[in-house]
Design a protein around this nucleic acid. Structure first.
Length: 489
RNA sequence: GCGGGUGUAGCUCAGUGGUAGAGCACCACGUUGCCAACGUGGACGUCGUGGGUUCGAGCCCCAUCACCCGCUCCA
């Protein structure tokens, strides 16, 4: 049995059937690498992003020191434009890396960077370079557009080309000075941003995991160079714990510290938080979030001009004319600490998470098939999405046991009260009660409240737990309190 | 980008050149009354898309798109 494929197919099918995730432009045949979130999916993904934002920004206490942190720190948010000045991408390094000219060999089906052909080996004849072997059939160098290009202005031409951002991070770096000048933040502090990014991935694959349009949740944390390693370790551990807290199991989640040779030349450390997605082979993990120590590469590049990653210490990359290959803004992006009278360029720790990948991981982790007894006591299979209550698209479903004797009216009242309190609530009076429970199990609703004949007499209802199937009878006016408490837990 | 597979109802799939099907799901009514009940009725199809062959195509041929698997790629 190919359980790996089967399991993923069941998950994809459920996502479609229940309105979590649809193919983009499906009625036109779909579009490779793009996906839409349906009515339940949008709630789920929103809950993931909200959990991130609240845990990082809204609920952050800048006057306390979180467990494991070297000291207290500030956290603020930002939402910047998707299209930015083209020079941003030249200084960030994306332009050079994302716009390479590539050469394909039709014979050996290999691809080479055009500028690396003289130093590459032909796979068929390793003693020769690509193109030198009799059988080589190289294509003309073709531009490899890893960034989406667009034209700014209705009458714009190629000279007005701009790019859709391939990451949200650069918007934070170029606003570093603005934030420092306007918010009274002091180092150490972080700037958070959630937003769409775009990359022309070579091969979109594995459902939403590798998409061309995706959403990131990024923090750029600015700190003193001397304490940067401590902060790197703090964020690495804290970010891992965030996923655990929201329900990703220990063995399918891992932190993988990059080996020295994997690191960018300027980085003192990078870790990936990875999840064992069902579509991957045994022992394989896919990246959810990268936590990188970026040193002062970004702020210096945007100030002095794009730095050459291969130099140590980092130096501005020069063009043939001896001037910076890509000029920086020329703005001073250093930080002045008026307590210590020290001026320095902060180092940056970057936890960069994929919102769609996280959402997909929570979906995969939540997916369970188990057996539960039906009314005759015979075991029946059921699909249940065991979302953490904080992430579940619907928190409570309210049912009248039967649609008569005042039960629907009682149940609707309760439904409206819960909605008014901001709880995502669903009302259902159709079909047998057992079927309604199963419908909610399949979309991961953690609590079902049922109004029965006794409710009309004594104002109590039963509240059922999705995972244990346990039911307790509580006063109807305690439902809100009960649910709210379990959402916090 | 390369090779293989798949594409028929919301979902899972049957249908091998001659009237478009099943199960589940969905809707209505009745019945039941706490874990996928039953009865009756109902709605739901560009057979992925476009061409071609044929008297006739869901089925054969070509192209194309999407998804899955394996390579490649993933700064």
């Amino acid at each position: 049995m190919d359980s790996k494929t089967e399991r993923m197919e069941k998950i994809v099918s459920l996502c479609k059937r229940r309105g979590f995730i649809f193919q983009s432009s499906e009625i036109y045949g779909g579009l490779n690498g793009f996906w839409d979130y349906g009515p339940l999916g949008v709630e789920l993904k929103r809950n993931v992003k909200d959990a991130w934002w609240k845990d990082m920004v809204t609920n952050h206490d800048e006057f306390g020191t979180p467990p494991g942190a070297p000291q207290g720190f500030g956290m603020v948010g930002l939402d910047c434009s998707i299209i930015m000045h083209p020079q941003v991408w030249k200084c960030s390094g994306h332009y050079d890396l994302f716009c390479d000219f590539m050469v394909d060999c039709r014979e050996c089906q290999a691809r080479f960077r055009a500028d690396h052909v003289p130093s590459s080996e032909c796979p068929l004849k390793p003693s020769k370079h690509p193109g030198e072997h009799d059988k080589c059939k190289l294509t003309e160098p073709r531009e490899f557009n890893l960034m989406f290009k667009t034209i700014v202005g209705a009458m714009g031409s190629a000279e007005d080309a701009a790019f859709l951002r391939p990451e949200t991070a650069q918007g934070i770096f170029v606003n570093f000075k603005n934030v420092c000048d306007t918010t009274r933040v002091r180092i150490p502090f972080g700037i958070c941003q959630v937003g769409k990014s775009f990359r022309n991935e070579i091969t979109p694959r594995n459902f939403t995991f590798r998409s061309r349009e995706f959403e990131q949740m990024e923090l750029e944390f600015f700190c003193h160079p001397n304490s940067s390693m401590q902060w790197y370790q703090y964020w690495r551990d804290r970010r891992l714990k965030w996923y655990t807290t929201l329900g990703l199991a220990g063995e399918r989640l891992q932190l993988r510290e990059h080996a020295q040779e994997e690191l960018s030349h300027y980085s003192c450390g990078t870790s990936d938080i990875e999840y064992a997605f069902p579509f991957l082979g045994a022992g394989e993990f896919g990246e959810l979030e990268g936590v990188a120590h970026r040193g002062d590469f970004d702020l210096r590049s945007h100030s002095e001009g794009k730095l050459n990653e291969k130099t140590r210490p980092l130096q501005v990359e020069l063009g043939p004319d001896g001037k910076p290959k890509w000029a920086g803004s020329g703005k001073d992006l250093s930080y002045f600490d008026d307590q210590t009278r020290e001026r320095y360029i902060p180092h940056v720790i970057e936890p960069s998470a994929g919102a769609d990948r996280g959402t997909l991981a929570f979906i995969c982790e939540a997916f369970h098939e188990d057996n539960q007894p039906d009314e005759k006591g015979e075991m029946q299979s059921r699909i249940v999405m065991k979302f953490h209550p904080r992430l579940a698209p619907i928190k409570v479903a309210v049912f009248p046991l039967v649609k008569k004797d005042g039960m629907p009216e009682f149940a609707l009242d309760l439904y409206r009260n819960l909605k008014a309190a901001g709880i995502a609530t669903y009302y259902d009076q159709q079909a047998a009660i057992g079927k309604r429970y199963r419908r909610q199990d399949e979309i991961g609703t953690p609590f079902c409240v049922t109004v029965d004949g006794q409710s009309i007499q004594d104002q109590t209802v039963t509240i059922r737990d999705r995972d244990t199937l346990e039911q307790r009878r509580i006063p109807a006016d305690k439902v809100l309190e009960e649910v709210a408490a379990r959402l916090r837990a």
